[in-house]
């Protein structure tokens, strides 16, 4: 059941383009269950939502609420037990070319330098070396790694490696960008800077984006809408529209309106997180 409550504090001019044609992504009544019989675990239960073109949506929830399971299902990396995921009007049954995925874990190829990592999807399409390097350079510049083209991932920081992953995904020109806690392993300052960078790219490319995260401030800073998930089984508990003005500069992030949205989401999330904590303590006991 979806209970939607708008807690908009102001109207963001031009933040969300008016939808036209079928929504880029439709998640319809998706359930994912692991195992069978009495020991079966329902990770995601009857989740439904759509993404409009150019929209930035975050999914937030406590640990163990099925966020990553949902990510794998939408990315076509895991089957659904029930329900369907549609990209535009096409029901997916595996990874879809229109969906670009950025993983939580460090996922650059350690044996390829930065430019060859980013050029990887183009290499698969048989694009010539000079053309794919020119295209890869464009995305490397976009994520702010100009000058690091010939470096190996082992010579880069965690934040830089994650930017390489983002550039590689963008090089495939996906219509939908799907990100699973891409900044989770990074320090707070790098997270904030990288969040800004992702937002800037998303605005520049008008990229429809779905971000899985457990950071409330990150979700509020980046998103047009936030889907709050309940603790196990993962359901959409509430949808929050974030109508803060863009660009979300430090003034916006430090505004009382931003704080109010964060506090409001935390009130919901705390209840779920406490439930998760109690259940895991009971499990250990």
């Amino acid at each position: 059941m979806i209970a939607e409550r708008d807690i908009a504090t102001s109207v963001a001019p031009g933040a969300k383009p008016a939808p036209s044609g079928p929504p880029p992504l439709t998640v319809e009544n998706v359930t994912k269950r692991f195992g069978e019989g009495p020991t079966a675990l329902t990770a995601v239960d009857s989740v439904s939502f759509t993404l409009d073109a150019g929209e930035f949506v975050s999914v937030i929830g406590p640990s163990g609420c099925g966020k990553s399971t949902l990510f794998h299902v939408i990315g076509g990396l895991s089957d659904v037990t029930q329900g369907i995921v549609r990209v535009e009007n096409e029901t997916i049954n595996g990874p879809h070319p229109a969906v670009g995925i950025v993983f939580q874990e460090e996922s650059t190829f350690p044996w390829r330098n930065v430019i060859d990592n980013v050029a990887f999807p183009l290499e698969l399409r048989g694009v010539s070396r000079s053309e794919r390097h020119a295209a890869a350079s464009h995305y490397i510049d976009m994520v702010g790694l100009h000058g690091f083209e010939k470096r190996l991932p082992s010579e880069l920081s965690g934040g830089m490696r994650q930017r390489v992953s983002i550039a590689r995904t963008l090089a495939a020109k996906p219509r939908i960008l799907l990100m699973d806690e891409p900044f989770a392993a990074l320090d707070e300052q790098t997270r904030l800077l990288l969040g800004d960078k992702v937002l800037q790219i998303q605005q520049q490319l008008k990229q429809t984006t779905l971000l899985i995260t457990h950071s409330i401030t990150e979700a509020v800073q980046l998103s047009d809408r936030i889907l709050i998930m309940s603790y196990r089984p993962g359901r959409i508990k509430r949808i929050v529209n974030v109508d803060l003005p863009r660009p979300r500069t430090s003034d916006v992030v430090s505004s009382p309106e931003f704080g109010a949205i964060v506090a409001d989401i935390w009130a919901d999330l705390r209840e779920e997180a406490s439930r998760g904590l109690q259940e895991s303590e009971r499990g250990q006991g």
């Binding site: 990396l77 595996g94 670009g100 993983f103 874990e105 190829f109 999807p121």
Partner: peptide
């Protein structure tokens, strides 16, 4: 690493 195989799968 599983994630590298998943990257490959995501690029079909």
């Amino acid at each position: 690493r599983r994630v590298l195989i998943d990257v490959g799968r995501s690029f079909r």
